[in-house]
Nucleic acid binder design. Structure first.
Length: 303
DNA sequence: AAGTCATCCAACCGCGACGGA
DNA sequence: TTCCGTCGCGGTTGGATGACT
């Protein structure tokens, strides 16, 4: 694939942006809108590569950027979403209006991860980043420590609790809804969610269906900015043929079938499930979706 | 006051995905 | 189908700044 030369390779500026450069970029975006970043260089003479322009705009110049400290609520949301999505910072940022993926990523590494590290292992020696960068033996050891920390954040508890009892699943679903009740303000969760259990008799299908979409309504609301078609779940589930909307486990592979969703959305969602959920044993082939395991997964923080 | 250490965060880099020719 | 240009993402770096001695 033809890779463009690095920004520094053709006389482009590097480092911190100056106010005039910011101004040029803002003016350009005002007129032409976002995108076509590579054209900025040609059309404005700004000595920054398109990539750098995009980054500057997305992370700093965008008018809807929220400044200031991450609130407790936002931190809580980040932690929960990270459990669910892993290091998919852009997805997480999509649920925090005004926050950027870079900001959240930085916040995670400087605050949340640190908290986890402290609580996980007070015995670990302090990690000097310079040592890590040096590649020395000590640096390698420090790097290992760092990796361990990161792994500890990527919760891998995944204790699979056998969940055959209907009541248990209902309780789990209630918990799930409340656990995930941190969607953007445009969504809210009603107590009625708890009534969407398996008591309808659908549990006969548990062996083949991961879940019925009735039970995942709240979850999909959270995902809706990325899977917009899923946000119409109310419509889907209110119809009699909702049984055609399925998430199914076949061996180690998740497959998703959703009416009205384009293949790409479905593929992305399938990938999410497979990468983040199946790997954490929240779902198991031939056993259906295990709410209790997901809850264990969500709750198994390293606090 | 000066030097050192620790922290934060803006910016860079490499890679994969995607779309158009 | 292949190639190329572009975009977007996640990991990483390093300069600026504050805290500490």
């Amino acid at each position: 694939m033809g890779r463009k030369p690095r920004c520094s390779a053709d006389g482009m500026n590097k480092g911190a942006w100056t106010p005039p450069e910011d101004e040029m970029l803002v003016d350009y975006v005002k007129i032409h809108g976002e995108g076509k970043w590579s054209n900025i260089v040609k059309e404005t003479g700004l000595k920054r590569c398109g990539k750098s322009c995009r980054l500057r705009w997305m992370n700093y110049l965008r008018p809807d950027i929220k400044r200031g400290n991450i609130s407790d609520d936002e931190e809580d949301l980040i932690i929960r979403l990270h459990k669910l999505l892993g290091n998919r910072w852009s997805l997480i940022a999509g649920r925090l209006p005004g926050r950027t993926d870079n900001e959240i990523k930085n916040y995670w590494h400087t605050n949340i991860a640190k908290k986890a590290q402290r609580s996980q292992s007070r015995k670990q020696p302090r990690v000097d980043r310079k040592q890590i960068a040096s590649g020395s033996e000590n640096g390698a050891a420090a790097s290992n420590v760092k990796n361990q920390t990161i792994e500890s954040q990527n919760c891998t508890t995944g204790v699979v609790v056998p969940t055959t009892a209907l009541q248990e699943n209902n309780m789990a679903q209630d918990h799930l809804v409340s656990t995930l009740a941190m969607a953007p303000s445009n969504t809210h969760h009603e107590n009625e969610s708890s009534s969407k259990g398996l008591a309808s008799g659908d549990n006969d299908n548990l062996s083949s269906f991961l879940m019925d979409f009735h039970y995942m309504e709240d979850f999909f609301k959270i995902l809706d900015p990325d899977f917009p078609k899923l946000s119409g779940l109310n419509d889907i589930t209110s119809t009699a043929n909702h049984s055609t909307n399925t998430i199914q486990v076949d061996g180690d592979h998740c497959s998703v079938s959703i009416n009205g969703c384009n293949p790409r959305e479905i593929a992305e969602f399938s990938e999410l499930l497979e990468a983040d959920w199946t790997s954490n044993k929240c779902v198991q082939a031939e056993q259906g979706f295990d709410f209790m395991s997901l809850l264990s997964f969500l709750d198994s923080t390293d606090e």
